[in-house]
């Protein structure tokens, strides 16, 4: 109902047109809501009665008069004003800082505190899902498998976790094609198609497996997952509401992103392969031979692009040869 808010001595009083008091209380016992945009202010009296008004400016003047002007500081910052341009610039700058500094730091902390059982659970469920959907049982002959396993044990024994930390699984790739990949707990999967592609060159396959061991040792999958999750979580926390569409894309996109290793991670795993092969007394150029083969058989001559997660094949081969040359010089 229409009424007026007046100050009467030290009290705030609401009265109707006939000046009869409807509610009142001392200024300190009355709750005046903070200003947000143009939404009506609420003045709540000790007895629970409520006075609502759209006259935000008048309330602000009244509060300033009473020495309570500081309560409105957030609203004054929020007002549509050229100052907001500076806020946008500062936000963008800080956003870049968060992405470059805070995110990697958070990822490292998360990797450090991850309970060891977590990667095991994750890997077991991933392998089971892949077995159910795309992968089939291997059709390789026993002798060939034995040769590959021998080479694999040799390099696994020389890696940080030791032989026990890694298990090699043979599978028929199906739609995955010639491929080898590592799950975060040290489970490696090698497809028959890749073995066929190698055409009896066991050392080359071992070189590829050394690359996958590199991914495990550097915890690339875990980092990638945390990175994707961290980006999504930070954006949602900082921006508050970003719309359900953008949220879905972040969550789903983050999942897709987590599946692929970044280019830097690939280069790191390549280096790991070279080092491990040298240590094992095997040919360190094995992984480079694999890229050569890829180039020849699959015509993968693509240059590195921002769309791809793997560096361009010729580029990678060159980087590996350079590394071997440098290692031999030392």
């Amino acid at each position: 109902m229409p009424c007026r808010l007046v100050e009467d001595g030290g009290r705030l009083v609401v009265c109707d047109d006939a000046r009869a008091e409807l509610a009142g209380g001392s200024l300190s016992s009355v709750e005046i809501s903070a200003r947000v945009g143009r939404i009506p202010r609420r003045i709540t009296f000790p007895d629970g009665s409520l006075f609502e008004t759209g006259e935000n400016d008048a309330i602000d003047r009244f509060l300033a008069h009473k020495g309570r002007g500081r309560e409105g500081i957030v609203h004054r910052l929020e007002r549509f004003h050229p100052r907001l341009i500076a806020f946008v610039a500062a936000t963008l700058l800080l956003g870049v800082l968060v992405y470059r500094v805070a995110l990697p730091a958070l990822v490292e902390v998360a990797v450090a505190v991850t309970p060891p059982i977590l990667p095991q659970i994750m890997s077991a469920s991933t392998l089971e899902t892949m077995d159910r959907t795309v992968l089939g049982p291997s059709k390789l002959e026993e002798a060939l498998r034995g040769r590959i396993l021998n080479g694999f044990r040799r390099i696994a024994a020389l890696s940080e976790g030791g032989e026990a930390a890694y298990t090699l699984n043979f599978r028929e790739g199906g739609p995955v094609g010639p491929n080898a990949f590592a799950l975060p707990d040290g489970t490696l999967i090698l497809t028959d198609e890749l073995v066929d592609l190698a055409d009896g060159d066991t050392e080359m396959i071992v070189g590829v497996l050394a690359h996958e061991i590199g991914h495990v040792e550097h915890k690339h999958s875990l980092r990638q997952i945390y990175r994707a999750a961290g980006v999504a979580a930070l954006i949602m926390l900082i921006a508050g509401d970003i719309g359900s569409g953008a949220e879905d894309v972040l969550v789903q996109g983050g999942g897709l992103l987590a599946l692929s290793h970044s280019r830097a991670a690939e280069a790191e795993a390549d280096r790991h392969s070279v080092e491990l092969m040298i240590k094992a007394g095997l040919d360190p150029t094995a992984i480079a031979r694999f890229f050569e083969l890829l180039e020849a058989k699959l015509h993968d001559r693509s240059k590195t692009s921002i769309f791809s997660t793997h560096p361009g094949t010729p580029e990678r081969r060159k980087a590996i040869m350079d590394l071997i040359a440098a290692t031999r010089r030392d």
Binding site: M1, P2, C3, R4, L5, V6, E7, D8, G9, R19, P40, F51, E52, T53, G54, E55, A58, I59, R61, F62, H65
Partner: peptide, 13 residues
Amino acid sequence: MALVESLPAQGIG
């Protein structure tokens, strides 16, 4: 009665 500000309130529309 000191009338500092008189504020019309929103009636129940």
